[in-house]
Structure formats: structure tokens, C-alpha cells
């Protein structure tokens, strides 16, 4: 299956919270708040709608193209699937919480009170999408603010919208390039920093930062190993020569 993505048009969102309710129902998550607009992400809430100024913004896992969570997990509990969804496997997880520390969007949540805690976040309704359906939240959205489809299509659509209504939209697709691209694309009528988006994110995928350090290890180990052994040999050789000379002279003296 091809890579999927969300396109979230902030100008269309009315803050009804239908996506919030649909997600709760779809994933059997308990009720955590009466007002969807007041809730926060948690191990029991995968998506929220936040009011920011005059607009409403959906917050959820961005299913990054090069996900930081996937790259940092020591045991590979996170995987980027073929449809683009980033999924978590609790049977592998150690609970080190590096994924939470590293996620540039601060998305993963933890079951802090549990004795078998899991990392929780949006799963892009993996099973539904595999079966050819829309994610529950996208299906529930009454205004078309949350759209879902092939990532290429969504990008095309976003670009088309920006081009057709240059006055209506701020000319940027958030998520197209941020941290190497994500599968949740946003378009907005106002600049993204006004909506509290982190606009300082760099375009390079974050895993590259560690990759550079890690790729030096083999060289470090081999060169280091050779150097250390060499040093040992050198300093030790000096000693041996000293000892030989010493013994030699001692012997000579003995003979005399």
C-alpha cells in the first residue's frame, strides 16, 4: 500500500470535537473530559483539538517520514509501516522512555501509573486503513478539515489549495519538510507561529544527528584498539630493553 497522510485545513476546523470522540470510540479509550477542547493528550487520549486564538488546531502523532522515535528505540519497539503509520510494540519495549524524550513534537504518552506501562499515541487507525477505510477521525470530521489519503495526493491537494486561494492561506505547508517531512500536513490562514506551532524545527531529519556520531564508532574502535596496543608495546619494549641491559650488566659484574 502506498504512503498515506492527513491533510488538516485549519481554516475549515470548527472545533466540534467529532474527531476526538471518534478516536476515543474507535480505540476503546475511556472518557477523560466533558469538553474535547479542554482535554490534553494522555495515555488515554490520542488526539485533541485545541483552541488557539480564533482557530482550532488538532494535535496528534505526526507519523514522521523519518521518525525520531523509531530511530532512538534501543530494541526497535517502534516501526514505520508501509502505509506510513508509526506503530509501537509493547512486547519489545523496555520502558526507557527515550522515544518520549526524543520526539520533536512531544507526542508519546506513558502509562505512568501502570506496572506494565506502555507508550501510547495515535496509530493512524492502522487496521482500518489497511482494510481500505478512512481513519475514524477523518471519517467523523463534518467539515473536511481533516482529510486523509495518499501522501502524494494530499501534498498535491494542499499545494492546489494554497495556489487557488493565496489570500485565504498562509503560504506554507507545515509538515512537508519539517524534520524531514511528516504524514500530518497542516495548512493555515495565519502564520504557524501564531498558532503555537514549533516553527524552529529544522528541515533535516533528526536521526541524522545521531547517525553521524554512531557512524564513527567502527573507526574509533579499530584505530583506538591499534593505538592502545601500539602504545602498550612501545612503552613495554622500552622496559624490556632496560631490563635486558640491566641483567646483562649484572651478569657481567657477576662474572668479574
Amino acid at each position: 500500500m502506498s504512503k498515506k497522510a492527513f491533510l488538516i485545513d485549519i481554516s475549515e476546523c470548527v472545533g466540534c470535537g467529532a474527531c476526538y470522540e471518534a478516536c476515543k470510540e474507535q480505540n476503546n479509550l475511556p472518557k477523560t473530559s466533558d469538553d474535547p477542547l479542554r482535554d490534553t493528550l494522555s495515555d488515554k487520549t490520542y488526539t485533541i483539538v485545541e483552541q488557539r486564538g480564533d482557530y482550532y488546531v488538532r494535535v496528534m502523532c505526526k507519523h514522521c517520514e523519518e521518525p525520531t522515535c523509531v530511530s532512538v528505540c534501543p530494541v526497535g519497539a517502534f516501526t514505520k509501516t508501509d502505509i506510513g503509520a508509526v506503530l509501537y510494540d509493547e512486547s519489545k519495549c523496555l520502558g526507557c522512555r527515550y522515544c518520549m524524550q526524543a520526539c520533536p513534537f512531544q507526542i508519546p504518552r506513558y502509562e505512568w501509573g501502570s506496572l506494565t506501562p506502555r507508550v501510547q499515541k495515535c496509530i493512524m487507525c492502522y487496521d482500518r486503513v489497511r482494510e481500505g477505510n478512512l481513519p475514524a477521525c477523518a471519517e467523523a470530521c463534518p467539515t473536511g478539515a481533516t482529510m486523509f489519503g495518499d501522501r502524494d495526493e494530499m501534498i498535491k491537494l494542499a499545494k492546489q489549495k494554497l495556489a487557488e486561494n493565496p489570500d485565504k492561506y498562509y503560504q506554507h505547508i507545515y509538515g512537508l519538510e519539517e524534520v524531514g517531512g511528516t504524514s500530518v500536513l497542516y495548512i493555515s490562514p495565519v502564520p504557524f507561529e501564531q498558532l503555537g506551532f514549533n516553527t524552529k524545527l529544522i528541515k533535516t531529519a533528526l536521526p541524522n544527528f545521531t547517525h553521524e556520531a554512531l557512524s564513527k564508532i567502527p573507526t574509533l574502535v579499530t584505530v583506538g584498539g591499534v593505538l592502545l596496543t601500539g602504545f602498550y608495546w612501545l612503552t613495554n619494549r622500552k622496559n624490556e630493553i632496560a631490563r635486558e641491559k640491566f641483567e646483562e650488566r649484572k651478569n657481567k659484574r657477576g662474572e668479574e
Partner: peptide
């Protein structure tokens, strides 16, 4: 500190060499 300390040995068989935490382990 680990949430699932009984799984600590997973690092021995489940590899993710791209992770610094893996190297640390």
C-alpha cells in the same frame, strides 16, 4: 527506572544499531 525492567535483556536479542541507547546498553 525502566518501566519494564524484566525486559532489559531484550537489548541483547532485539537490535536497533541506529539507537544510541542501544549502544549504551
Amino acid at each position: 527506572d525502566l518501566g519494564r525492567p524484566w525486559a532489559i535483556w531484550h537489548a541483547i536479542i532485539m537490535w536497533n544499531p541506529r539507537s544510541v541507547m542501544f549502544e549504551v546498553a
